[in-house]
């Protein structure tokens, strides 16, 4: 970090993935280095699985007075590989800013999907987290990747906050962080190129003029228009040979999004499926497997 600089970071994750914890740990590490720091989530009704944001400001100038959400970040960190296809992760990113992405894809593949006047850093944090922690919670690994890409803090400054937060699980988290630091690859993005392939059309929000007076909703069940399918980080796949067509999956799906198609095969509607994995867990014959989104 330069001597008199304030760096703004925006974290893109899914509810439950630990974006807020990442931001908090980073701020604590910065404060331990004698810097000034903020960490806070974006507040909203978003729930486990839904795309969420968290923010950091880190400064070696002095107190940070701004309390607003970060809209023009110097760095964005993307915890979930699928998010670059469903949200505009580089929105407002400053010239020469850095995009740090967790992805199983190669540097070259991601370079062909993102473009702009930015630097790119990639790491397969999901694999690292699975191996180091046994679960795909990537927040500590992504802290390692962030520090490799930006060098805003020393890697060792994270050790204390991680110990404090994770207690007996600290060692594994520190390992994940170190490994991601080692494995992060960097590249310049090309300024022109196509944007990322969008998984779905982006939803258009209604303006206040379009709402009925009194906030009346006149169409029963119109939430059907609302897509929750982009909350998922994995999706169910049926082995129709094994499936005995009992329908227990459709009964237990919290989204009510499993039904039979014309051939009589059970399938999930990906427009709504949130990837909870209940159907796969409860299937009598283990005909359903959860496959990670890429």
């Amino acid at each position: 970090m330069e001597k008199d600089e304030t760096i703004e970071i925006r974290w893109h994750g899914r509810g439950g993935q630990g974006a807020v914890t990442s931001a908090e740990l980073l701020a604590l590490a910065a404060i331990n280095e004698g810097k000034f720091a903020q960490a806070f989530p974006s507040f909203g009704p978003e729930r486990r699985g839904a795309p969420v944001l968290a923010f950091n400001r880190i400064s070696n100038v002095g107190h940070i007075r701004v309390r607003a959400a970060v809209t023009n970040p110097d760095v964005v960190v993307v915890l979930d590989p699928g998010l670059i296809y469903i949200t505009d992760v580089t929105s407002g990113l400053k010239q020469d800013g850095i995009v740090v992405v967790n992805t199983p894809k190669s540097l070259a593949d991601i370079k062909s999907e993102l473009s702009g006047p930015w630097k790119l850093a990639v790491v397969n944090a999901t694999v690292i987290a699975r191996e180091a922690l046994g679960i795909p919670i990537v927040n500590t690994a992504m802290l390692g990747a962030l520090l490799k890409a930006t060098e805003i803090l020393g890697l060792e400054s994270l050790v204390e906050p991680i110990k404090e937060r994770f207690g007996p699980r600290a060692k594994n988290n520190i390992d994940a962080c170190h490994r991601a630091y080692e494995e992060t690859l960097m590249a310049e993005l090309s300024v022109v190129g196509q944007g990322p392939r969008k998984a779905f059309e982006t939803e258009r929000l209604l303006s206040w003029q379009e709402l009925l007076p009194g906030c009346v909703v006149i169409e029963a069940g119109n939430a059907k228009q609302y897509r929750t399918g982009d909350w998922k980080s994995q999706h169910p796949v049926w082995d129709q040979q094994r499936c005995i067509k009992c329908g227990i999956c459709s009964l237990f799906c919290p989204e009510g999004c499993i039904g039979q198609n014309k051939e009589g095969d059970f399938e999930a509607n990906m427009y709504y499926c949130k990837g909870c994995g209940i159907c796969a867990r409860e299937c009598w014959t283990e005909a359903i497997t959860m496959v990670e989104e890429t």
Partner: peptide
């Protein structure tokens, strides 16, 4: 084993709700 097939496929709580992934309460 086939009892689930006897339950109505009609939904009165539409998909597109925003409960957490895997929520037992919304189920």
């Amino acid at each position: 084993i086939y009892a689930p097939r006897l339950v109505t496929t009609k939904e009165y709580l539409a998909s597109g709700h925003r409960a957490c992934s895997g929520c037992g309460e919304v189920l």
